[in-house]
């Protein structure tokens, strides 16, 4: 009888039967591609920041003179830096593509009462991106 009462106490709280509350694992983002993609997208911001820092370092070394610039170039040629920057570049591209694709969700543009299709919002982003990249490539290659 006492055992039965104890079991009932465990099964019930004051107002309702005991609910099972599942715990969220620390690794919830592993194993499901959409979640992993989200975490990688968030992680990509670190590489965006990294790229900005590199750019600032490059400008600072140009400002300090030819010797500093040569030193900066040597630093960038280090295989470890090349490896980090290749990974960084892939992350920055991933960052750009995922955010461009999300633009139509966040922005609603209506023309004459009709919602403009998503491709009309993300498309110009891609066109501008490619155009600016082409100009930069032309400046570097010429």
């Amino acid at each position: 009888m006492v055992e039965k009462l104890e079991a009932e106490e465990k099964a019930y709280t004051l107002y309702h039967p005991r609910w099972f509350r599942p715990r969220v694992s620390t690794y919830w983002w592993l194993g499901r591609w959409p979640y992993l993609k989200f975490i990688l997208r968030e992680l990509s911001s670190i590489f965006v920041a990294w790229t900005v820092v590199l750019m600032l370092l490059a400008i600072a070394s140009v400002e300090r003179g030819p010797q500093a610039w040569a030193h900066f170039l040597a630093f960038m040629r280090n295989p470890l830096m090349v490896a980090i920057n290749v990974i960084g570049f892939l992350f920055v591209v991933f960052h750009t593509v995922t955010w461009f694709n999300l633009t139509p969700h966040a922005m609603v543009v209506r023309v004459r009462g009709k919602r403009v299709p998503g491709l009309m919002l993300s498309g110009p982003n891609y066109v501008l991106w490619i155009a600016i990249s082409a100009v930069v490539a032309w400046l570097l290659m010429r």
């Binding site: 039967p17 609910w19 099972f20 599942p22 969220v24």
Partner: peptide
């Protein structure tokens, strides 16, 4: 997922 479970497949 993420809801307390009352019984079997029933969530709160």
């Amino acid at each position: 997922r993420y809801f307390p479970v009352i019984r079997d497949l029933v969530t709160e």
